[in-house]
Write a protein that binds this DNA or RNA. Structure first.
Length: 475
RNA sequence: CGGGGUGUGGCGCAGUUGAUAGCGCGCUCGGUUUGGGACCGAGAGGCCGAAGGUUUGAGUCCUUUCACCCCGACCA
């Protein structure tokens, strides 16, 4: 009996592959309205693992989880000019409620800066009231013209952190802290490598002085903006009047940051690690880390399986036994493979006799024989190794697909042949960026912040430039 | 918003020049099976996206409309 092909090829039919994998792995389904998805328990469990990874870090920093209203009076949203300008094309607005036309329309939050800062203004009088640091895990709505499950949906889940500080330095430190957290989460949980840097003027968040971003490179060669952290300066604190008296008795406006990571990250996870056999989950985000699949469901096998499950669970490995006896062995294996389970244990008469299991890693298909005595240590180590290897894989993809261009011709040639990241010296200029985008469909992703004071020439104008940028096509 | 596509059992689809709505998968029941998506038998389930029109007769033709998907443009 041969293995049945369940998915379209990732390489040849990326769009079909992506949507099929989401359904087959039981992550999500389409909702009834445009661009909406239903996140099913298996998909939501991944989101919960992300939350579980981030919450301790957020709380450790002194940022408290909170909840602000879903509906924002239009007038609040209009207080910061560039903010409303940026978001107005994609707002969903409530104009009728309780059968009556509302005097003032209510906007379904596209992000919560305005409603939160309106409240912050009431809570801040003295420098002693600062910093204010709050986060919310919530949903936001942005009416995008073109949607894809997880990557860009009309409604999505995220966390949005919002802080107000007495000094710019403190705000900058917080902005950086948030980005470090995102990098840590992406590297160590998602096993996704990427590039950290600042956004160009054109790509910056509406209302921010500076936007820092984590840009991941997907196997297709397209970039995914994976998380952002904004330095809002005093752009919101002034119109919202978040002001306080300093120690010296002077009046000052607060310095602010906001930062977010959304369910888009799950889309990035699928794209980065998935293959033609289905989803591949890094152990640290996998809702189930080991599945024990038995061949015959005999009493001996069941006893052995339960024994193993207990051992693994006592070692904090999330384990499940597939107890269905109405499905055949091969069917069950495929079912779990498509769901991306990091390690599958197989138990049949042979294994019972030898007190060993045959185990297979989803990520690289490696098979091992594991004896029951050492199963906990071996599995723990193996899961760690898989996690590490998956990140290494992502890093290799990033390194291999980051190329340098010194002039526009080279740039265009790379974008049209290899895609991926293109590193160039460039002086940020929105008009030029617009032109590049028109001609190549690539845009700036970020300005590399940890480059070593190199000086080069702007790849378009030839003028001196000390700033290095990553350009790419993006999702 | 532009281009393309699709709406027919839960899912995937077929349905010819208009004439009693079909197939595969899945599902239910029974049985045989079980080391990489098994098989046999018997069943259940759809007024064909919606509205209007033409016709003796419409899944099929005409008009209108709605929704979703894909590709662009747009987009923290």
């Amino acid at each position: 009996m041969t293995k049945k092909k369940l998915l379209p090829s990732k390489k040849d039919f990326p769009a079909e592959w992506y949507t099929t994998i989401i359904k087959l792995a039981d992550l999500a389904d389409y909702g009834p309205s445009k661009g909406s998805i239903i996140i099913k328990p298996y998909g939501y469990a991944i989101w919960e693992n992300i939350q579980n990874a981030m919450n301790p870090i957020i709380k450790q920093k002194g940022v408290g989880n909170s909840y602000f209203p879903l509906l924002i009076p239009m007038s609040l949203l209009e207080k910061e000019a560039s903010h409303i300008e940026g978001f107005s094309p994609e707002l969903a607005v409530v104009t009728i409620a309780g059968n009556e036309k509302l005097e003032e329309p209510l906007v379904v939050r596209p992000t919560s800066e305005t409603i939160m800062y309106n409240a912050y203004a009431n809570w801040v009088q003295s420098w002693r009231d600062l910093p204010i640091m709050m986060n919310q895990w919530n949903n936001v709505v942005r009416w995008e013209k073109r949607t894809t499950p997880f990557l860009r949906t009309s409604e999505f889940l995220w966390q949005e952190g919002h802080t107000a500080h007495a000094t710019l330095n403190e705000a900058l430190e917080t902005q950086k802290w948030a980005m470090d957290m995102y990098k840590n989460i992406y590297n160590n949980y998602f096993a996704i490598d990427g590039c950290i840097g600042n956004k160009s003027k054109a790509e910056r968040f509406s209302g921010a002085d500076e936007t820092m971003t984590f840009e991941a490179l997907m196997p297709s060669g397209k970039a995914l903006q994976a998380a952002t952290s904004h330095n809002l300066g005093q752009n919101f604190s002034k119109p919202f009047n978040i002001s306080f008296q300093t120690k010296d008795g002077a009046d000052e406006f607060a310095w602010q940051t906001s930062w977010g990571l959304s369910t888009r990250s799950i889309g990035g996870l699928i794209l980065t690690h998935g293959d033609d056999d289905g989803l591949v989950l890094p152990p640290k985000l996998a809702p189930i880390q080991v599945v024990i699949v038995t061949v015959n469901m005999s009493d001996d096998e069941m006893r052995f399986a339960n024994e193993l499950k207990t051992i693994l669970e006592n070692g904090n490995i999330t384990t499940e036994i597939d107890t269905r006896d109405d499905e055949r062995f091969g069917f069950k294996l495929n079912k779990w493979e498509v769901k991306g389970i990091p390690i599958i244990y197989k138990i049949g008469a042979r294994e019972v006799e030898n007190k060993k299991v045959t185990a297979k890693a989803r990520f690289n298909k490696e098979e091992r024989e594991i004896s029951i005595e050492t199963s906990l240590n071996e599995t723990t180590k193996w899961l760690d190794d898989i996690q590490t290897a998956m990140l290494a894989n992502s890093s290799r993809n990033l390194a291999e697909n980051t190329r340098t261009a010194t002039n526009y011709d080279e740039f265009k040639s790379i974008i049209s042949t290899h895609k991926g990241f293109v590193k160039v010296f460039w002086n940020d200029n929105s008009e030029i960026e617009e032109k590049i985008k028109k001609e190549t469909t690539a845009s700036s992703r970020c300005m590399i912040i940890d480059h070593h004071e190199k000086v080069g020439k702007d790849f378009l104008t030839g003028e001196p430039s000390s700033t290095e940028w990553i350009f790419a096509q993006s999702y």
